[in-house]
Design a protein around this nucleic acid. Structure first.
Length: 349
DNA sequence: TCTGGGGTCCTAGGACCC
DNA sequence: TCTGGGGTCCTAGGACCC
């Protein structure tokens, strides 16, 4: 066997729920739902549902209230982000400990691994075994000849995948089986095409990956934008970035936002909250030593209409007073005084 | 289904400049 | 003066992802 470059996509199974079950083993086998403050009557959404909860139709992103209706017997737990961050770091350290691999972290619970190997399935199994041994967490690994295919392959590796040959913890998706596995699926199965774009494509007669792949990129460029149009066609053809990048990520922005349990009706309170959010952001970017060049404010009025305003600062700053003043200036550009559901402040570098 | 919080990138129009 | 063309920055919004 000859060695070649492979992309592996490592994705922890039901990460937040699995971490909580490790802390409280008596929860094993029970439907566990992690999200918000763990109170299903509050304004919050599900961050992760255990497989048992998913069997009742609970999904991430679903309002906690809805989850409670679908699965009243579930154990609801608050999201403990600092802990998940710590556990995630342990997992990433296990990946980085493999010799001659490049690791690109995509979130708490997933990462790409680039490696030169003759046997990517063996490497995938080694990774799964090492992660399990060192962290007691299970993961699935997608194997691909680029990042797009590796990422999509993971879904077929996951426990319970109905794909023939799938569900076994690893799955390989390359140019060799792309058409067989993907061509008849809806365009939304692709990583980067959501509900809105899938509908736009369907309006143009493109419902399957096969149809998208056969489209002239120039036609979609004129229609859906010079970058996005051709990119969608590339997605349909299974084309994506081939090399995993190990260089550390430099954030472009840093922000905080809050949804209030009760809408705010007094504009003086809105101003107070915006100033507080700006100081939170200032603390973050001050700690990172990166001054903000722009400040943005987001306001979501009840029931759910969202607007943003922003401005470029005269000079970049990390000063909390300056950032709070700038955020309040930007806030003044909102003229509506309807009840406010959410406020956010963001710094751009 | 009464819809979190953290982000990224793209698009398009207008301002402004040469 | 009825009027070019290119480039860049600013801003708001949209879509997507974890």
């Amino acid at each position: 066997m000859t060695s070649q470059y492979w992309v592996l996509h490592v994705d922890l199974d039901q990460f937040l729920a699995a971490v909580e079950i490790l802390r409280r083993p008596e929860l094993a086998g029970r439907p566990v739902i992690v999200g918000g403050k763990g109170d299903p009557t509050q304004r919050a959404v599900v961050a992760t549902a255990s497989y048992e909860a998913r069997r009742h139709g609970v999904r991430s992103g679903m309002p906690m209230r809805t989850a409670a209706k679908r699965c009243p017997d579930a154990v609801f737990l608050p999201a403990d982000n600092p802990h998940y961050e710590e556990v995630s770091e342990e997992v990433m350290a296990v990946l980085r400990a493999f010799p001659d691999v490049v690791v690109e972290v995509m979130g708490w619970d997933e990462a790409f691994v680039g490696a030169e190997t003759a046997d990517p399935e063996a490497l995938a199994q080694d990774i799964r075994a090492a992660v399990l041994a060192k962290t007691r967490l299970h993961c699935s690994v997608g194997i691909g000849d680029n990042m797009l295919r590796a990422k999509l392959a993971t879904e077929f590796a996951k426990p319970g995948s109905p794909e023939p040959g799938g569900g076994g913890g690893t799955f390989r998706l390359t140019g060799a089986n792309w058409v067989e596995v993907m061509a008849d699926r809806p365009t939304q199965a692709l990583w980067g095409i959501g509900a809105k774009t899938a509908r736009k494509l369907a309006d143009r007669g493109l419902t399957t990956v096969r149809e998208l792949a056969a489209t002239d990129p120039a036609v979609l460029a004129a229609d859906l934008g010079p970058a996005m149009g051709p990119w969608y066609v590339q997605l349909g053809r299974g084309i994506g970035r081939a090399r995993v990048e190990g260089t550390p990520w430099v954030p472009r922005s840093r922000g905080h936002e809050t949804t209030f349990q009760e809408n705010i009706t007094d504009w003086a309170d809105v101003r107070t909250e915006v100033a507080a959010l700006a100081r939170l952001v200032a603390a973050d970017i001050g700690g990172e030593g990166r001054p903000a060049a722009r400040v943005g404010v987001k306001v979501r009025f009840a029931p759910f209409s969202t607007y943003t305003r922003s401005k470029t600062l005269d000079a970049p700053t990390t000063d909390p007073d300056e950032l709070a003043t700038a955020a309040l200036d930007v806030l003044e550009r909102f003229t509506s005084r309807r009840p406010v559901r959410l406020l956010g402040v963001k710094a751009e570098f």
